[in-house]
């Protein structure tokens, strides 16, 4: 089973990298971009075939390693 984990900064946590991307987009002439937040996508291939068990395992992986829940939120997506 394949999965994607999306890790994003929590609202209220400053994102200097997102800000730099925002400025760069403005410099390239892309008008109307109101905000940019940068995150991470982590792709995983799991031996697990049961969706519920896969989601439970991924949730634990996120809490233990993939995301730092002090500053980040995560979302789990099973892709097949």
């Amino acid at each position: 089973m394949k999965a994607k984990v999306h890790v994003t900064l929590k609202p209220g946590v400053l994102d200097p990298q997102g800000k730099a991307i925002h400025h760069a987009l403005g410099a390239l002439g892309f008008a109307g971009v109101e905000a940019v937040r940068q995150g991470k996508v982590i792709e995983l291939e799991l031996a697990e075939t049961d969706r519920a068990r896969a989601e439970a395992a991924l949730d634990e992986m996120c809490r233990k390693l993939l995301a730092n829940t002090v500053i980040e939120n995560y979302a789990i997506e099973l892709t097949d």
Binding site: L14, P16, Q17, N68, V70, I71
Partner: peptide
């Protein structure tokens, strides 16, 4: 310890 250490604001 509480909190987190993020990328320097200056990048």
């Amino acid at each position: 310890l509480p909190g987190a250490l993020m990328r320097n604001a200056s990048l």
